[in-house]
Simulated scan of single mutants.
Amino acid sequence: MSFTTTSPKDDFALIEDNNPDKIYAQFDQLRSKCPVAHTSETGGFWLLTRYDDVKRAASDTDTFISSVKAVIPSDPRGIRRPPLNTDPPAHTPYRTALDRTLKPARLKRLAPILVKHAQRELDALLKTNSVDDQDDDSETQASQIDISTQFGASFAAWVEVAWLNLEDEIAPVLATTAAKWVNAWRQQNAAETSAQSARLYDLARKLFADRKKSKRDPESDPASSLLLEAGPDGQPLDDELLM
């Protein structure tokens, strides 16, 4: 069964449209007629569209591995990093360390902090948009907000700051750098991906250097939690992989 395709060998090509109804319709069609579909886009990949299939695949780490490819498109530099690009048992210490910091009690403590960050960032965005509308003399100008680029990047940075126990002034730096890094990855620009990644690594090095000198509660500090773990060989996790 073929849908909108770019190659006779393909079962589908992802719809390039911002209308969610069209996107949902494509996945409904795939689920009913071609639940395991293939495309040659972005290097080629298979797509599972039914919940039970996705659940079984996610639980079968022997058959469906992450060490070859876990992100589409792949890192333009060909780099694989834990825990995303690793399989058990190499994956296990990273997951153990991070899960330790995501227990319900801690999430409840973080929730009101994140709500305040979200409200502040959204209020500022709405206020700026309102001022822009007032300055626009065009009667046909519609108010528009790109929630992903204008809100998502900044709020995600504040989530990281709260979860990793970073200083507040790091949030805008993290938001800008991470957004540039993601865009470079999407464009498969290896040089720019490396440049922005280097800035993120600098933040991580400073964080781990501090935690090595003064560890914090491993249940509320991811870096301190990671420093407690050992690899399958019983040795401490490699510094570069930690970062």
Score class of each variant (00 low, 15 high):
residue 23 I to Q: 13
residue 11 D to E: 03
residue 103 K to S: 01
residue 178 A to Y: 13
residue 174 L to S: 07
residue 220 S to H: 00
residue 187 Q to I: 07
residue 128 T to V: 09
residue 113 I to C: 04
residue 113 I to H: 04
residue 237 L to M: 05
residue 161 V to R: 05
residue 240 E to R: 07
residue 197 S to P: 00
residue 70 A to C: 09
residue 54 V to W: 00
residue 236 P to A: 08
residue 95 R to D: 02
residue 43 G to C: 09
residue 167 E to Q: 07
residue 143 S to C: 12
residue 94 Y to E: 06
residue 226 L to N: 06
residue 68 V to L: 12
residue 59 S to Y: 00
residue 80 R to E: 00
residue 115 V to L: 12
residue 196 Q to L: 01
residue 82 P to F: 01
residue 200 L to V: 07
residue 212 K to F: 06
residue 98 L to H: 01
residue 74 S to K: 08
residue 84 L to C: 10
residue 57 A to I: 13
residue 236 P to R: 04
residue 96 T to Y: 00
residue 173 V to N: 10
residue 193 T to P: 05
residue 82 P to S: 06
residue 55 K to H: 10
residue 202 D to S: 10
residue 170 I to R: 07
residue 54 V to K: 02
residue 58 A to I: 01
residue 29 Q to A: 14
residue 113 I to A: 08
residue 214 S to M: 11
residue 203 L to G: 08
residue 214 S to L: 12
residue 126 L to Y: 02
residue 10 D to C: 03
residue 54 V to N: 00
residue 191 A to S: 12
residue 99 D to K: 07
residue 223 A to N: 07
residue 59 S to C: 06
residue 21 D to N: 09
residue 37 A to Y: 02
residue 40 S to V: 03
residue 224 S to H: 03
residue 52 D to Q: 10
residue 166 L to C: 04
residue 71 V to F: 12
residue 206 K to N: 12
residue 61 T to I: 05
residue 74 S to I: 07
residue 199 R to L: 15
residue 216 R to L: 03
residue 113 I to S: 06
residue 92 T to D: 14
residue 27 F to I: 11
residue 212 K to L: 13
residue 243 M to E: 15
residue 43 G to T: 07
residue 65 I to E: 04
residue 134 Q to A: 15
residue 113 I to K: 13
residue 179 A to W: 01
residue 52 D to I: 04
residue 190 A to W: 01
residue 191 A to T: 07
residue 158 W to C: 14
residue 31 R to V: 05
residue 212 K to E: 12
residue 126 L to A: 04
residue 125 L to T: 14
residue 59 S to K: 14
residue 213 K to H: 09
residue 231 G to F: 00
residue 35 P to R: 01
residue 39 T to K: 03
residue 116 K to Y: 01
residue 119 Q to R: 12
residue 117 H to W: 03
residue 80 R to Y: 06
residue 103 K to H: 02
residue 213 K to G: 11
residue 40 S to E: 03
residue 200 L to S: 07
residue 67 S to V: 06
residue 24 Y to R: 14
residue 233 D to L: 07
residue 21 D to V: 13
residue 80 R to W: 01
residue 3 F to A: 12
residue 64 F to Y: 15
residue 38 H to K: 12
residue 124 A to V: 10
residue 15 I to L: 13
residue 39 T to E: 00
residue 100 R to A: 09
residue 45 F to N: 04
residue 171 A to L: 07
residue 235 Q to K: 14
residue 87 D to W: 00
residue 22 K to G: 05
residue 63 T to H: 06
residue 196 Q to N: 14
residue 24 Y to L: 11
residue 45 F to C: 08
residue 110 L to C: 07
residue 232 P to Y: 03
residue 178 A to E: 01
residue 202 D to I: 02
residue 196 Q to I: 01
residue 103 K to Q: 04
residue 239 D to F: 03
residue 124 A to T: 14
residue 155 F to T: 11
residue 234 G to K: 09
residue 241 L to S: 13
residue 202 D to C: 03
residue 15 I to R: 13
residue 64 F to V: 09
residue 32 S to Y: 00
residue 198 A to D: 14
residue 111 A to N: 05
residue 185 W to Q: 11
residue 135 D to M: 11
residue 95 R to H: 06
residue 111 A to V: 04
residue 102 L to I: 02
residue 169 E to A: 14
residue 3 F to R: 08
residue 164 L to A: 13
residue 96 T to M: 08
residue 59 S to A: 15
residue 128 T to M: 11
residue 55 K to E: 10
residue 46 W to S: 11
residue 240 E to F: 03
residue 126 L to C: 11
residue 241 L to R: 12
residue 120 R to Y: 11
residue 96 T to E: 06
residue 62 D to R: 15
residue 123 D to A: 14
residue 6 T to V: 10
residue 59 S to T: 09
